[in-house]
């Protein structure tokens, strides 16, 4: 299925979805050499964002975080694309200077949109395309 949001950073990227309920700070929250979330107590602590379609509400922390996204791309550990609930300058600027496709304001409130399914983000059109995973009903 295709849902439409708002294009923030141009380009197209595909990968397995990784959803964070908590905001992400790239400066000191993500290791630029490995792409692993290192913020202590973060729900995704220890997980790699490398190659994922990374979904989180919004960015937090220092504006220098923009350069960490750039570092991740240079090191080959950037997300394939970013989806925010609401874009703010740190992530938007970081995604643009690094060439990571990014969209926001897209309806992902579908139980079939979950970690591990493959999704494609088009930052030019603002579209998100994915095959919702069949959601099993409650056990009989």
């Amino acid at each position: 299925m295709i849902v439409r949001g708002r294009g923030i950073s141009k380009g197209t990227g595909s990968g397995p979805v990784l959803i964070s309920a908590a905001p992400i700070s790239f400066l000191s929250g993500v290791d630029p050499d490995t792409g692993i979330i290192v913020e202590i107590g973060h729900p995704l602590q220890g997980k790699s964002i490398s190659g994922t379609v990374l979904v989180f509400p919004y960015g937090k922390g220092s504006t220098v975080g923009s350069y960490i996204i750039y570092a991740l791309v240079q090191n080959g550990h950037a997300p394939a694309a970013i989806i925010n609930r609401e874009a703010e300058p740190i992530i938007a600027v970081g995604a643009i200077i690094s060439g990571v496709p990014m969209i926001d304001r897209v309806d992902i409130d579908n139980p079939g949109f979950r970690d591990g399914i493959v999704a494609t983000v088009n930052g030019d059109t603002g579209e998100l395309e994915y095959e919702p995973e069949a959601v099993s009903g409650p056990p009989a």
């Binding site: 950073s9 874009a87 703010e88 600027v93 643009i96 200077i97």
Partner: peptide, 13 residues
Amino acid sequence: AKMMEILFALGKV
């Protein structure tokens, strides 16, 4: 192009 993309994105945000 990148610089304009930054300004356009911030304008949208």
